[in-house]
Design a protein around this nucleic acid. Structure first.
Lengths: 203, 203
DNA sequence: GAATTTTTGTACCATTTCGCATAAAATTTC
DNA sequence: GAAATTTTATGCGAAATGGTACAAAAATTC
């Protein structure tokens, strides 16, 4: 695509890397409490460079949300591998989620989207829109797998795949909130296990 | 108790009312993005009065969280009336939750705790602590009702009441996030309904 | 190598932020 | 009614904030 070298002084940074570093700052502090100084320090770019490359703070934040959404969807599709039983798919989704949520320097960080974007969703329409779209895409991906499970007889024929998928997501949302609230790994794993049991038909 | 009149110039405000007004501001904007000017305008108290009565911004925010926790627990206990079937208890909990979450001037506000406290939970230990405690108390209240349901035969004898209660809460957490993300009432009510079905053992 | 283009770094600016000092006002106690 | 006590109101101030002007630097194009 853009094989031609761009004229002018070359950038010393990689945009994806910078967005990843900015994400860490927003993840810990939230959008509003993250200052351009924080972001500048974490990315090692001075403010004019940040501004020139990504726009204002909200633009940059939206970029980090978008990156997180993409990364998460990749992980989700990986976990939804249809050659595995549905029960195993859900177990993997929750395990991957907890791997992310429980990481953190001082305290577990939870989900980047749920923990930081919800707070801004009222005041910033674009943030709410990314949040809404991300949640729906997650639901949609799981729904596809549920429909396949119905076809295969992994789930009862009268299953409402869309709603069941939303319940599967609900367990994940709760893990996200609880992780950031400081719940232990053991507690969260127990919720994940019983959540998967329930979705797949316990008893 | 404190029947004696306090010496000095009397306050012109009621603390509970002011905390309620401050809550509205924090609910819409989040803790960090809410300025003392916003709070001062909403409460009609000037900054020194706010400061004198409630301490700094974080202290005031903690007061609003505490008030929300108490209000919510009251509503929860009301909904958990043991003379109703468990299915009806859950339906009421979710209905009451949605009544709160879907209210808002510009967009649905979601849950005050989940939408605003999660964002601050990493940087402010006291906020994380209130959040953790609140979630646990909610789980605990529901668990009590679940245990009663097991005794009564509303639920299978081998039910893990504590974990099942956490799943019931999980549905509520998801409603909270989705409401703030802009999901429609119909969507949320469908999740609530199927969530209750699942918990109580559908099929 | 000169002109052009883009990025970088320094420094700055206007505004907002939180918090407080100080004094006036309103009440109780004596 | 004077003293003591608490709350209110005005206004200040130091620091932090988001954003930008401007010139130097580093590359490409011609």
């Amino acid at each position: 695509m853009k094989s031609e070298k761009k004229q002018g002084r070359p950038r010393v940074f990689d945009a994806k890397t910078v967005i990843g570093q900015a994400r860490e700052v927003f993840w810990d502090r939230g959008f509003s409490a993250a200052s351009l100084d924080n972001l500048s320090a974490a990315t090692k770019l001075n403010r004019p460079s940040l501004y020139g490359a990504f726009g204002d703070k909200e633009d940059l934040y939206l970029d980090t949300l978008e990156g997180y959404r993409e990364d998460s969807l990749d992980i989700l599709f990986e976990a939804l591998n249809p050659s595995l039983p549905l029960r195993e798919n859900l177990a993997r989704i929750y395990a991957e989620a907890l791997k992310i949520y429980l990481h953190g320097d001082t305290a577990a960080r939870g989900c980047f989207l749920i923990s930081t974007a919800t707070a801004e969703a009222i005041q910033h329409d674009r943030v709410r829109e990314v949040l809404r779209r991300s949640l729906n895409e997650f639901d949609g991906a799981i729904k596809e797998r549920m429909e396949l499970a119905v076809e295969r007889g992994e789930l009862p024929a009268d299953t409402d795949a869309a709603t069941l998928a939303k319940l599967a997501s609900a367990v994940m949302h709760s893990l996200a909130v609880r992780a950031r609230a400081g719940d232990t790994r053991e507690t969260l794993e127990a919720i994940a296990r019983s959540g998967a049991d329930f979705i797949c038909g316990r008893l």
